[in-house]
Computed example of a mutant assay.
Amino acid sequence: MRAAEIPAPGRPPEITDREPPEPGPGEVVVAVRAAPITPLDLLCASGTSYFGVPRTPYVPGVQGVGTVDGRAVWFPTSAGMTPGDGSMAALACVPEADLVALPPDVDPVRLAALGLSAVAAHRALTSTGGLTAGETVIVLGAGGVVGQVAVQLARLAGAARVVAGARSAAAQERARSAGADAVVALDTNDVAELGARFAEAAGGAADLVLDPLYGVPAAAAARALGPGGRLVNLGGSAGETSPLDSSTLRSRSLRVLGYTNNALTREDRAESITHLAAAQSLSVAHERVPLDEAAAAWERQAAGGAEGRIVLVV
């Protein structure tokens, strides 16, 4: 079978022919249709992640969409985190308990592009953030996959107003395309200035901030929250620390909440994937690339030169 294979840590994948995988106890073989190249795939393959140096060669791909006996399924893998192979191949072995059944008419590339990033947006907004209809939501990093999904999900949940924060012009345009009412440029490290921009864009006290950035953007967005407002953090791409001041937290009795997909049960994950699959209007910027072009696609994704999330099509 055709597969993308990481030959050594820190190197892009190479296309190779492999023997089809043999399922172990409790596993099934999935015929892969679409596999996204995600930040976690890039991190694991670098050999610098907290999971340690992966055993090479291996097939990367921590998630994918495919079929089992003609039935459409979404599936996760632990490729790069534990020994074994992932989704970037014609066939993948997966524990049957991890499969999530999908509608037969699902677009595999759309769902693969959403994947676990969209699961994080869904759970952080709902289960952790407690979003209700009529609230005002600020979504930071709204040009990324998590942010694009969060803007759309907040809209679908009945948010009264959705404000996006994004850095580059391209990211700001993606946020607008996702349906944000207003977009704030994250082009300054002045917390007061940025906070004033968020407050003006919100048009009143905001209720919830979805924050995959932390750092200055989180501290600024918190200043736009009203009494009892919530900030849900699910990443630190703008900084591992934040100048979020005590007076802002105390004066409005704000709640700062942490979120990670690692805390999800299989049932939680399956519930979110099912919700995302059913919301056919939900999509993020993505590219379809044939599996045989995985090496160049991998390097473009790593360098930030892709038009959104790259999805390898098998």
Rank of each mutant, 00 (worst) to 15 (best):
M1S: 13
P12M: 04
I15V: 15
P21L: 11
G26V: 13
G26S: 14
E27C: 05
V28A: 12
V29Y: 13
A31L: 13
A31D: 15
A34V: 08
P36F: 00
I37W: 03
T38F: 05
T48M: 08
T48G: 00
P54C: 00
R55E: 10
V59D: 00
T67V: 12
G70A: 14
P76F: 04
S78T: 15
G80F: 00
D85L: 03
A89C: 01
L91G: 00
V94Q: 09
A97L: 11
V100M: 07
L102N: 09
P104Q: 02
V106W: 07
D107G: 04
V109N: 09
V109R: 13
R110W: 12
S117T: 12
H122D: 15
H122N: 14
G129A: 03
G129I: 10
T132G: 14
E135T: 03
T136G: 00
V137N: 07
V139H: 02
G141L: 02
A142S: 05
V146I: 11
A150S: 09
V151A: 03
Q152F: 13
A154S: 13
L156N: 11
A159K: 06
A159R: 07
V162I: 08
S168A: 04
S168E: 02
A169Y: 02
A171E: 03
A171M: 02
R174Q: 04
R176S: 03
G179A: 07
G179Y: 07
D181P: 10
V184D: 05
A185H: 04
A185Y: 03
T188F: 06
V191K: 09
E193C: 10
A196I: 03
A196C: 05
F198D: 07
F198N: 09
A202S: 13
G203N: 06
A205Y: 07
L208Y: 05
V209L: 04
L210C: 08
P212D: 13
P212G: 13
Y214I: 03
Y214N: 14
P217D: 08
A218G: 09
A218R: 12
A220R: 10
A221M: 05
L225F: 02
L225I: 05
L225W: 03
G226I: 10
G226R: 11
P227D: 10
V232M: 11
N233F: 06
G235M: 08
G235D: 06
A238N: 00
A238L: 00
S242Q: 08
D245Q: 13
S246V: 15
S246C: 15
T248F: 08
T248A: 12
L249R: 10
V256E: 08
Y259D: 02
A263W: 13
E267L: 15
R269D: 01
A270C: 07
S272G: 01
S272W: 06
H275M: 14
L276A: 01
L276D: 01
L276I: 06
A279T: 14
Q280V: 15
S281P: 01
S283N: 12
V284T: 14
V284S: 10
E287Y: 05
E287K: 13
A296K: 14
W298H: 05
R300D: 00
Q301D: 04
A302E: 04
A303W: 00
G305S: 06
G308L: 10
R309D: 02
V311Q: 03
L312K: 12
V314P: 15
